[in-house]
Simulated assay, not measured.
Amino acid sequence: MEKPVELNHSECMGILRPIRDALDVLNGKWKLPIIVALSFGEKRFTEIAREVHGITDRVLSKELQDLTMNGLVKRTVEDTFPVKVTYALTPHSKSLDEVIEALRKWGVLHREIILKGSSDE
Rank of each mutant, 00 (worst) to 15 (best):
N8C: 10
H9P: 06
H9F: 13
S10I: 10
S10P: 04
I15T: 01
P18T: 00
I19Q: 09
A22Q: 15
L23M: 15
D24T: 14
L26Y: 09
N27A: 11
W30S: 02
L32F: 05
L32A: 02
A37Y: 02
L38K: 00
G41A: 05
E42A: 05
E42Q: 07
E42F: 04
R44G: 15
F45M: 05
T46S: 04
T46P: 03
E47Q: 08
E47M: 00
A49L: 15
E51V: 06
I55G: 01
T56A: 02
D57M: 13
L60G: 08
S61L: 05
S61C: 05
K62W: 10
L67N: 00
N70T: 01
G71W: 11
V73H: 02
V73A: 01
K74G: 01
T76L: 12
T76K: 13
K84I: 14
Y87P: 06
Y87K: 03
A88T: 14
A88P: 09
L89T: 01
T90M: 00
P91G: 11
L96Q: 01
E98Y: 06
E101W: 14
E101L: 15
A102Q: 09
A102I: 07
L103P: 03
K105G: 10
V108D: 03
H110E: 08
E112P: 03
I114V: 14
G117I: 07
S119V: 05
E121N: 12
